[in-house]
């Protein structure tokens, strides 16, 4: 290799590395900023939610459903053979720390992202008694598993943990 070729390759190579180094922040600036990430976890106080009630709150700017299941609803969910379901999961697998009465799910239909009904007082809960999506008629059961309609998956259960008996940290 001639000396000139070496200088040429080294110079262009160095400029290339520099260009890539500049592109990284240009692309990375589009990722969620610190203030958005600061809201990436949400604390929910469960103490006021009575059995049979549900609340609608937000997690990562999207609706989050927190439901206090009744014993009857838990029994209904456990009665179903999970292996027969479209997205096979037991209520046990969809709850945390053996506290099967606390069902925490995203309020985002897995079909096209609509917000299902059922968390509010008196809303249509569909024929399986859980949630009902008014957009294209997906019905979810008391464990928020998909039972009927076009949605492919159960309502997503976000990662969460109990910080005390009556409070959870989602995210």
């Amino acid at each position: 290799m001639r000396r000139r070729d070496f200088i040429n390759i080294a110079a262009v190579g160095f400029a290339g590395v520099g260009a890539v180094a500049v592109v990284v922040p240009l692309i990375d600036q589009m990722n969620p900023s610190a203030d958005v990430l600061a809201l990436a976890s949400t604390e929910v106080d469960l103490s006021a939610i009575q059995p049979g009630q549900a609340i609608k709150t937000t997690f990562r700017a999207q609706p989050l459903f927190v439901r206090h299941l009744t014993d009857k609803e838990i029994a209904e969910a456990d009665k179903v053979d999970a292996s027969t379901l479209r997205d096979p999961q037991t209520l046990e697998e969809r709850t945390v720390g053996g506290k099967k009465q606390w069902l925490v799910t995203m309020g985002v239909c897995t079909h096209l992202g609509c917000v299902p009904l059922g968390a509010g007082e008196g809303e249509n809960r569909g024929e399986y008694g859980g949630y009902f999506c008014p957009c294209h008629g997906s019905s979810y059961d008391t464990a928020a598993r998909i039972r009927k309609g076009p949605a492919p998956k159960n309502l997503e259960v976000p990662k969460f943990s109990f910080t005390s008996d009556t409070a959870i940290l989602v995210g």
């Binding site: 589009m30 990722n31 969620p32 900023s33 958005v36 990436a40 990562r60 700017a61």
Partner: peptide, 17 residues
């Protein structure tokens, strides 16, 4: 998707870009 939106759902960052 998160990169395009600048968040987990459409928000101020998405609107601005």
């Amino acid at each position: 998707q998160t990169w395009l939106l600048g968040g987990f759902a459409p928000g101020n960052a998405s609107l601005n870009r």
